[in-house]
Simulated scan of single mutants.
Amino acid sequence: MTTEPLIKPLIEPLPLVKPSALPEPRALLELLKPITWFAPMWAFGCGVVSSGGAVQGRWPVVLAGILLAGPLVCATSQAVNDWYDRHVDAINEPQRPIPSGRIPGRWGLAVAICWSLLSLAVASLLGPWVLGAALFGLTLAWIYSAPPLRLKRNGWWGNAACGLCYEGLPWFTGAAVMTASLPDGRIVLIAALYSLGAHGIMTLNDFKAMEGDRRTGIRSLPVQLGADRAARLACLVMALPQGIVAAALIAWGHPWHAGVVAALLAGQGLLMRRFLADPHGRAAWYNGTGTLLYVLGMLAAAFALRGGVA
Score class of each variant (00 low, 15 high):
residue 56 Q to Y: 14
residue 103 I to P: 05
residue 119 S to R: 00
residue 78 Q to E: 02
residue 63 L to C: 00
residue 273 R to T: 08
residue 206 D to V: 02
residue 223 V to G: 01
residue 122 V to I: 05
residue 161 A to V: 13
residue 78 Q to A: 12
residue 140 L to E: 00
residue 182 L to T: 11
residue 168 G to C: 02
residue 64 A to P: 13
residue 274 R to G: 07
residue 50 S to K: 02
residue 46 C to M: 11
residue 150 R to Q: 12
residue 32 L to T: 00
residue 50 S to E: 02
residue 306 R to N: 02
residue 173 T to F: 12
residue 161 A to R: 09
residue 275 F to L: 03
residue 174 G to P: 13
residue 71 P to A: 11
residue 262 A to T: 12
residue 27 A to M: 00
residue 294 Y to H: 00
residue 239 A to Q: 07
residue 2 T to D: 14
residue 165 C to G: 10
residue 87 H to T: 02
residue 310 A to N: 13
residue 154 N to P: 02
residue 103 I to D: 07
residue 112 A to E: 07
residue 29 L to E: 05
residue 219 R to E: 14
residue 221 L to G: 12
residue 178 M to R: 11
residue 128 P to S: 14
residue 29 L to H: 04
residue 168 G to P: 04
residue 74 C to E: 08
residue 224 Q to A: 15
residue 30 E to Y: 13
residue 292 L to Y: 07
residue 111 V to I: 06
residue 299 L to W: 05
residue 102 R to A: 07
residue 294 Y to K: 04
residue 18 K to P: 09
residue 242 Q to S: 01
residue 157 W to V: 03
residue 100 S to Q: 06
residue 44 F to V: 08
residue 233 L to Y: 11
residue 285 W to M: 04
residue 62 V to M: 09
residue 141 A to W: 04
residue 91 I to R: 10
residue 28 L to D: 03
residue 221 L to T: 09
residue 52 G to P: 10
residue 135 L to Q: 00
residue 6 L to H: 15
residue 276 L to R: 09
residue 21 A to E: 08
residue 244 I to P: 07
residue 213 D to T: 01
residue 287 N to Y: 12
residue 87 H to C: 14
residue 274 R to A: 15
residue 209 A to F: 06
residue 61 V to K: 14
residue 10 L to C: 11
residue 289 T to K: 04
residue 183 P to D: 14
residue 228 D to H: 10
residue 222 P to A: 12
residue 194 Y to K: 02
residue 99 P to I: 07
